[in-house]
Simulated scan of single mutants.
Amino acid sequence: MDYMLTNDELHWIRDVLSSNSVATITEDELKWLRRIKGNDYVYDPVSLPPHYVRLKKTEFERIENKEITRKELDNLRATMKVYTPEELFELRNKSARVNQGIKDFSGIYIICNTVTNDYYVGQAENVFDRAYKHFVADNGSRELYLDYYRLGHEFSISLVPLEKTSFSDLNELEGNGIAAYDSYTNGYNKVQGNYMDKPSFKNEDYQSVAELLLDRIKETEEFSALKNDSNRRNYIQRFFQEQLNLPFDVNLHWGFMQNLTKMIRQYQKANKYKKN
């Protein structure tokens, strides 16, 4: 297991990961808190843990930006074909799409009940394989399905590619889309999106260590063989043993390992699609 780390880097990583340092937030997060709570606010990590701050900040920003996001998505939808559920049923098979020159893609689907103007926003790595399932029993939103099947409401569906938007990943696009169409409060969505899929490190030193490690290992053969989170966690624990000579302390290191695991998974996913 060769990470090409210098001795100074190894000593620094060992110092960071062996110290029981306090959890902190970034300067940007502190500025946001003071904007909400007042300029004299003093951060207390016990009463307001960093991960909770990040969750609430993300939620706040999505709501604050919802009109901008709605305009962006509406403009994109206006240039794209709008599907009916029946058309999506016909296109659920790859052969049917190939015959029409349609390629599947990673993005979100925006489902609108044209009778009630209620929305559902979802994400998929292959939108044609997923969107139609909401109109099949026990495969998506139950309320949406009942409005379609029992009440006979009409629906329109827009499929928006991630690469056409200003967002960098599906979770951000979906979460902002849910806020933009108010589909959690007044629509079919039961959750506000995936807030905590992003890594949320204890402090900036922990994050810097993780970024350095990812940069050094991402081109190795062993890295490319990590196919699931169990492999990734085992890989990280071996790093502690073989490179740092540190015993893996569950209480001290579990959060770091979970977040580095997320970083590795997301990097591999993004890199996979770039190559394809």
Rank of each mutant, 00 (worst) to 15 (best):
M1A: 13
M4S: 12
H11T: 06
H11Q: 11
H11D: 14
V16E: 07
L17S: 02
S21W: 05
A23T: 12
T24Y: 05
T24R: 09
T26M: 08
D28V: 04
E29W: 06
L30Y: 12
K31T: 12
I36M: 09
N39E: 12
D40Q: 12
Y41T: 09
Y41I: 08
V42I: 15
V42G: 05
D44W: 06
P45A: 07
P49R: 10
H51A: 06
L55P: 00
L55W: 06
K57G: 03
E59S: 10
E61I: 04
I63A: 06
E67I: 06
K71Y: 13
E72V: 06
E72T: 08
K81T: 14
P85A: 04
E87L: 05
R97V: 10
N99K: 15
G107A: 08
Y109P: 00
I110T: 03
C112L: 13
T116G: 04
N117V: 04
A124Y: 11
N126M: 08
V127D: 02
F128I: 01
D129F: 00
R130V: 05
A131R: 01
A131S: 14
K133E: 00
H134W: 09
D138W: 03
S141Y: 04
R142E: 14
D147F: 05
Y149C: 01
V160H: 03
P161M: 09
K164M: 10
K164V: 03
E172I: 12
E174I: 09
G175V: 03
G177I: 11
G177C: 07
G177Q: 08
A179Y: 05
A180Y: 14
N186R: 12
Y188L: 09
Y188Q: 05
K198I: 07
P199Y: 06
P199T: 05
P199R: 06
K202W: 01
D205R: 09
E211K: 02
R216K: 15
E221C: 02
F223Q: 01
S224I: 02
N234Y: 07
Q241P: 01
E242Q: 14
E242D: 15
Q243S: 13
P247Q: 09
F248C: 09
D249Y: 03
N251F: 04
N251K: 13
W254G: 00
G255H: 13
M257A: 09
N259S: 04
I264F: 00
K272C: 04
K274E: 12
N276R: 12
